[in-house]
C-alpha cells in the first residue's frame, strides 16, 4: 500500500532526520515504529502525508484512482465493493488505478491524496473551542466545497457519517459538548472519530498515547486496534512503550539515527527475543520506563 524508496530528509538547519529509508507497508498492517526521541520517527510519519517534504527519494501508493485520487489499496476488489455499497451508481469502468508518488504531486491533488490519510497526534490537535460534532465534521472538509466548510454548513449525509464515527469510538453522548471540556482520552477518541469521518484508508498515529494515563492509554489503543481490524485501516503508530507495540501491533519497525535498523512481524518471533533485539534499536538495555504496565 505504501512504499518508501530511498527516502532521505535533511532539514534546512542541517539536521539529518532520515537516511535512505526503504520500507513497504501492506494494507491492513498495524505497524509500530519504535526508537529513541529524535531518531526520526515523527519525521518519517509526516513524510507519508507530506506535512514534511522529503529531500530525496519517493513514497509510492499503489492503486490510486487518477481521477479522484482515492486509494484502492492492495485489495482492489474489496474497495470497489465498499464503494458500491456507499454509492449504488458507482461505475468501476471509469477507474484508472495507478501508482502515485506523493512526493511529486502538489496543490489540489496532494490535498485529495491527504484526505485518504488520517492522522492523530500526541496533543490530539482537535479544535478545542469548537464542539465535538464540529471537530468530527472537519474530517469532511476535503469532500465539500470551500464555501460550505468555511460557513460550517455540512450536508445531512456528512452529519450521519460523523455520528456513526462518534458511535464507533463510544463517545456519541458527548456530541454537543465543547471539545475543551473533554478529558485527554476522550479528546483522542474524537481525533480518531475525525479520521474515521475522513474515510481514511491509512491512519498515522504520532505518539497517540504519550499524554495519557495508563488506563486511558489501553482504552485508546483498543480503539486504534478496533478500527485497524474492523475497518481494515492500515495503521502506522510511533510508540514509546514496547509492551503496547507487542500487544497491539502486527509489526515492529525500529528506527535509530534516521535509519531503519529493525523490522519484524511480531508473530514470527517470541516476545522475549524481540525485547532483547530492541536493545540494539535503543542502544541501551530496556527499563521499566519502556513499558506501560509492569506485568
Amino acid at each position: 500500500m505504501i512504499k518508501f524508496v530511498n527516502v532521505s530528509k535533511t532539514y534546512p538547519n542541517g539536521t539529518v532526520a532520515l537516511t535512505d529509508i526503504n520500507l513497504e507497508i501492506k494494507e491492513g498492517e498495524f505497524v509500530a515504529i519504535l526508537g529513541l526521541s529524535g531518531a526520526g520517527k515523527s519525521t518519517m510519519l509526516r513524510t507519508i502525508n507530506q506535512i514534511i517534504d522529503v529531500s530525496s527519494g519517493n513514497i509510492y501508493f499503489n492503486n490510486v484512482d487518477i481521477n479522484t485520487y482515492e486509494m484502492y489499496g492492495d485489495d482492489v476488489e474489496k474497495e470497489i465493493k465498499r464503494q458500491k455499497e456507499l454509492n449504488p451508481e458507482f461505475d468501476e469502468t471509469k477507474l484508472d488505478l495507478q501508482e502515485i508518488d506523493i512526493t511529486k504531486i502538489k496543490g489540489k491533488n496532494l490535498r485529495k491524496m491527504r484526505s485518504n490519510i488520517g492522522m492523530v497526534f500526541q496533543n490530539f490537535n482537535i479544535i478545542k473551542r469548537m464542539s465535538v460534532i464540529q471537530n468530527v465534521l472537519s474530517g469532511r472538509i476535503s469532500y465539500n466545497p470551500t464555501w460550505r466548510t468555511v460557513l460550517g454548513i455540512f450536508p445531512k449525509i456528512d452529519k450521519e457519517i460523523a455520528y456513526e464515527a462518534l458511535n464507533k469510538v463510544d463517545i456519541l453522548e458527548k456530541t454537543y459538548h465543547r471539545a475543551s471540556d473533554l478529558s485527554g482520552g476522550q479528546m483522542q477518541r474524537v481525533a480518531i472519530a475525525r479520521s474515521l469521518a475522513q474515510n481514511a484508508k491509512i491512519l498515522l498515529a504520532d505518539e497517540p498515547v504519550a499524554s495519557l494515563d495508563p488506563i486511558t492509554t489501553f482504552e485508546v489503543m483498543k480503539f486504534l486496534k478496533k478500527i485497524n481490524v474492523g475497518d481494515g485501516i492500515t495503521t502506522i503508530a510511533n510508540l514509546h512503550h514496547v509492551d503496547l507495540a507487542l500487544e497491539y501491533a502486527t509489526r515492529i519497525v525500529g528506527v535509530r539515527d534516521g535509519k531503519i535498523v529493525y523490522d519484524i512481524q511480531i508473530k514470527d518471533k517470541p516476545e522475549k527475543q524481540i525485547i532483547r533485539d530492541l536493545e540494539q534499536v535503543y542502544g541501551r538495555p530496556l527499563s521499566h520506563d519502556d513499558f506501560v504496565g509492569d506485568d
Binding site: 502525508n49 506535512i51 490535498r111 485529495k112 491524496m113 491527504r114 484526505s115 490519510i117 488520517g118 492522522m119 497526534f121 496533543n123 490537535n125 482537535i126 479544535i127 469548537m130 472537519s138 474530517g139 472538509i141 476535503s142 470551500t146 466548510t149 468555511v150 460550517g152 481525533a191 475525525r194 475522513q198 498515522l204
Partner: peptide, 19 residues
C-alpha cells in the same frame, strides 16, 4: 499542531484559517 491536523485532513488555506 491544529494547523497540521487540518492540513492532514486535506484542508486548503481557507480551511486552515477557518478551523
Amino acid at each position: 499542531g491544529q494547523v497540521e491536523a487540518i492540513i492532514s485532513l486535506g484542508g486548503n488555506k481557507m480551511n486552515v484559517l477557518r478551523y
